[in-house]
Design a protein around this nucleic acid. Structure first.
Length: 182
DNA sequence: AACTGGATCGTCT
DNA sequence: GACGATCCAGTTG
């Protein structure tokens, strides 16, 4: 299990180490293949203008979930690191509970089940009920990688500020990314 | 393959 | 009152 100490470090140190980690919610999930880092100095981050009701979890204890709703439709899952910083989980390679994920996402190819932050949240049935939950106890489980992964870095996706900041981390060559890297 | 617009609503200005 | 750390379907090339 990945415990609080793992997350109580600089967000740029933690983010690449999440590639290959198995994320499960109620036993359903897969291997993390794409993440993005956000911190308080970053104009693209929800924490940039300080604590609010929505981003409260981002300023809480490390090792907890920060979930928010975007565009009135989708949910996105983050892992909180040091206060004001978090890592957006953007894509996974499905490994466990494929039937449950297909039930929630529809009869899609496996590579499209979790290939984006909103898709991943839908596949795992994540909503605001998970906001603020600890990542080292049920319903969550985080298991360390059993192989090493080649991590590639590049600019983040879908933002309008901090566009050049290369804080996107992906498993190089993975077929399960939200978008190919560069 | 690349781009466009629509869906839909909580949060902050 | 505008906008977003998105997704999908439709159109165009």
């Amino acid at each position: 299990m990945l415990t609080r100490d793992f997350f109580d470090r600089p967000v740029l140190e933690v983010a690449p180490e999440l590639i290959g980690v198995e994320l499960l919610l109620e036993g359903v999930g897969g291997l993390i293949v794409e993440v993005e880092a956000y911190d308080q100095s970053d104009p693209a981050s929800h924490s940039f203008r300080g604590p609010t009701l929505r981003n409260a979890a981002m300023f809480g204890a490390p090792g907890h979930a920060y979930v928010y709703k975007i565009y009135g439709i989708h949910y996105c899952l983050n892992f909180v690191c040091k206060p004001g910083s978090a890592i957006l989980i953007r894509a996974m390679e499905p490994t466990k509970g494929l039937a449950a994920m297909h039930q929630r996402r529809g009869p899609l190819p496996d590579r499209q089940l979790c290939s984006g932050p909103g898709k991943l949240a839908q596949a795992l049935a994540i909503d605001l009920n998970q906001n603020g939950l600890s990542l080292d106890e049920p319903p969550f489980a985080l298991l360390p990688p059993d192989q090493s992964h080649d991590v590639a870095t590049g600019p983040r996706i879908g933002i309008t500020k901090g566009v050049e900041t290369p804080w996107r981390f992906v498993s190089r060559g993975s077929r399960f990314l939200s978008k190919p890297m560069r």
